[in-house]
């Protein structure tokens, strides 16, 4: 780890100001950033820890939306009675992230802002058509994820909360990488009226994406059987030593079916 100045601002305004400094990094749960620092792969001048910002924590129901503060931990989301009641698929996803240590430290905002191509949350945000709100603006999920580790966030922009529509049947199925237990393939399905949104994480060479062929198959028939014989092209699917594109593409179909079957 290289030396840096550590800040723990007490207000969002102060955090935004610090995050705007040159070579500043925002620290949420730190599950990507801290190992990166330890391995000397990042050298920020300032580390801006958001843990003192109470207004960024917690789950609320507002105008039919679940509003989850960016600094809400995975464990909190997994255990939240509100989330379980209104978006059980999201609670289930959160309960399956990493291990208990990770879930008690990692945050939804950190996960979404980092947009790791194998992270779980981006698939839920995209499939549920959530809205990401920052200190500056609100961004729809379709506009937010820009590719591997890339988002619409500007330098120093801080996610404050993420707002999920409720009353949506949804489900998540993950095939974990045997080593890291990150998603080798994770599929989040959500029924939006007659339409369906299917978001895939872990598999895309360009990060989280929507599987249009599967969405089309589920349109008007949100059932696992609707996906029988439907496949996803291996084009644009990630290949690495753990799984090649063909296997990942196959798993997208399998996980999509399981996600639909588990949806409620």
């Amino acid at each position: 780890m290289y030396e840096f100045d550590y800040h723990r601002p007490g207000t969002l305004d102060a955090a935004v100001k610090l995050a705007g400094e040159a070579d500043a990094k925002i620290l949420a749960g730190g599950h990507t950033l801290i190992p990166t620092l330890k391995q000397r792969l990042a050298a920020p001048k300032h580390l801006v820890d958001l843990h003192a910002l109470r207004e960024l924590q917690g789950v609320h129901l507002k105008d039919g939306h679940l509003v989850i503060g960016a600094m809400t931990t995975h464990a909190h989301v997994a255990d939240s009675a509100l989330v379980k009641a209104h978006l059980p698929g999201l609670a289930q996803l959160a309960a399956g992230i990493g291990d208990p240590h990770v879930r008690h430290r990692g945050t939804i905002g950190g996960s979404v802002a980092n947009n790791d191509p194998a992270a779980d949350y981006p698939s839920a945000v995209l499939a549920l058509n959530a809205t990401i709100t920052t200190n500056k603006r609100s961004i729809t999920a379709d506009d937010f994820f820009k590719g591997m580790f890339e988002t619409a966030l500007a330098e120093g922009e801080i996610i404050t909360h993420i707002s999920f529509p409720t009353g949506i049947k949804s489900g998540y199925a993950k095939f974990p990488n045997p080593a890291s237990r990150y998603a080798l393939v994770g599929v989040f399905v959500a029924q939006h009226g007659a339409d369906a949104r299917v978001a895939v994480t872990g598999a895309g060479a360009n990060g989280v994406f929507r599987a249009s062929t599967l969405e089309a198959a589920l349109k008007g028939n949100f059932s696992a059987a609707a996906l029988d014989g439907k496949s996803v092209s291996a084009d644009g699917i990630n290949s690495d030593m753990h799984a090649d594109a063909a296997y990942r593409a196959h798993l997208i179909g399998v996980m999509a079916k399981r996600a639909v079957a588990a949806a409620h």
Partner: peptide, 9 residues
């Protein structure tokens, strides 16, 4: 390539 627990199971 398998030099950490991210890749070595």
């Amino acid at each position: 390539l398998t030099a950490s627990y991210m890749d070595y199971t």
